[in-house]
Design a protein around this nucleic acid. Structure first.
Lengths: 249, 249
DNA sequence: GCTATAGTTGTGGTCTGACCATAGTGGTCT
DNA sequence: AGACCACTATGGTCAGACCACAACTATAGC
């Protein structure tokens, strides 16, 4: 047994193999940590490190206690892992906020055009749009619904990868979006405009007008960030974080 | 101290806070595991679980030994984390291969159009293209260079988020791409065509012809998967894995 | 006999202490 | 001056113990 890879990596590899060859599928239970440790000839702590990674990545869900609901269960909820990854990378300046926004713009415009072209189930989106009409919402509540609305469009497109990415992108800059809202001169006016734009976007999609849907969504997002001047990453006074400081390597 | 969040989560939160307020930046050292454990009042194993997560997510790099190069150092290499996340989600059927391909198509077409419109440093891409002209490459070698070529386009666009996503998307289906290559009737013909298409794509970008660049890149990727009939996920005989099997929840 | 309560068991969550491997550091001997 | 060797700090790993929790089970009380 080559132990040059670290012990927890062999655990990860073992589980990944089981996933790939189909012997482990969503809904299945992983063996108990102690059993797994004994089977693979590693310590329980190494098993736990691997499971922790899988948990953060959205591969498993753990539950204490006994019985059929306890233990580690394979799930496949990529949004959580995507959010964690992007949120931390933004925090560490690995991702620039403006790149996140640009990517969101890119993805979501394409989603809108795709939905308008190929159709999709927009019931959830419409429901969220209705919920946002309430006048009693706080800024945070409104923005939370707004986030859900945008993610719901991605989900309607039927592409799980894009949906997870959208959720991650939106969550990673949640605090920036909120901070931007507080800088607005007149929240009531802006939120009314956002509501109207949402309505128009959905209408364009349902009218199968891909070009309009794409344009409206683009302007919707770009407009918000332009209005609020979402800042460059504040804690990075260094100049080279601006443009792709890629070391060619 | 509320310990309803698990111990390792408090460690993660602590480090994330330090990243956000700027007291921890790329290149900095984390305190030794034992010190961190003592400071936060948790066991070393809990600290290690948090560090393991950060390592997989591409936030830190650890090194054994002593001296200034040892210990956990903040880095920000999102590609690794993105690749791990997507690879595992594909393995667990959380991501359908066709969704990964569709997303790649979407992102990369946009990248090509963007590069043609706004320009970018294509030296790396051209170098990879030259390297691919060799006739002595095996399929695996060629495809590895191909992957690098496509990622290099994303990097040239200057958007770190898109670059990391592209790397993750490509790595997650590496085995499928390779398997597809082996089903080809005539690898020499196909690889020659791929080479030619790469050249045309780069030419279109340098000619600032966004529409052509987008179309050529789209056809390039779509053509390969059409030719090789990249399969649906094999270990999933269930029917509902085809279209967005989204449980409305 | 039925129900309520109190063990029992199996599981993850955590901590402690120990030991090993590794890589710098510094001192010592030639 | 150079080579060698112990020392030290660090991550990597393991073993064992204990706790918290949830389901199951046996017993006591009615």
């Amino acid at each position: 047994m080559a132990d040059s890879p670290r012990a927890w990596e062999t655990v990860l590899a073992h589980i990944e193999s089981a996933l790939i060859d189909g012997s482990l599928r969503p809904g299945d239970h992983l063996p108990p940590e102690r059993t797994l440790a004994a089977e693979l000839g590693v310590g329980r702590s190494s098993v736990r490190e691997a499971l922790r990674v899988l948990e953060v990545l959205g591969l498993i869900r753990t539950q204490t206690g006994s019985g059929p609901h306890a233990g580690a269960i394979i799930v496949a909820t990529p949004s959580g892992g995507m959010s964690a990854l992007m949120r931390l990378q933004v925090a560490a300046n690995g991702f620039a906020v403006q790149d996140v926004v640009a990517t969101r713009l890119l993805l979501e415009s394409a989603i809108a055009a795709d939905l308008a072209t190929r159709g999709g189930d927009l019931a959830g989106s419409r429901q969220l749009l209705d919920a946002m009409q309430s006048d009693t919402l706080t800024e945070a509540e409104f923005l939370a619904l707004d986030a859900q609305f945008h993610v719901s469009l991605a989900e309607a497109s039927g592409n799980e990868v894009v949906a997870a990415m959208m959720a991650g992108l939106r969550n990673s800059i949640e605090s920036y979006v909120l901070a931007a809202a507080e800088r607005l001169a007149d929240w009531a006016t802006t939120s009314a405009r956002l509501r109207q734009e949402h309505t128009h976007i959905l209408a364009a999609i349902e009218a199968r007008d891909a070009a309009s849907a794409r344009r409206l969504l683009h302007d919707h997002i770009a407009g918000y960030y332009a209005e609020t001047q979402v800042p460059r990453i504040p804690p990075a006074p260094l100049a080279d974080s601006r443009l792709a400081g890629r070391t060619p390597h």
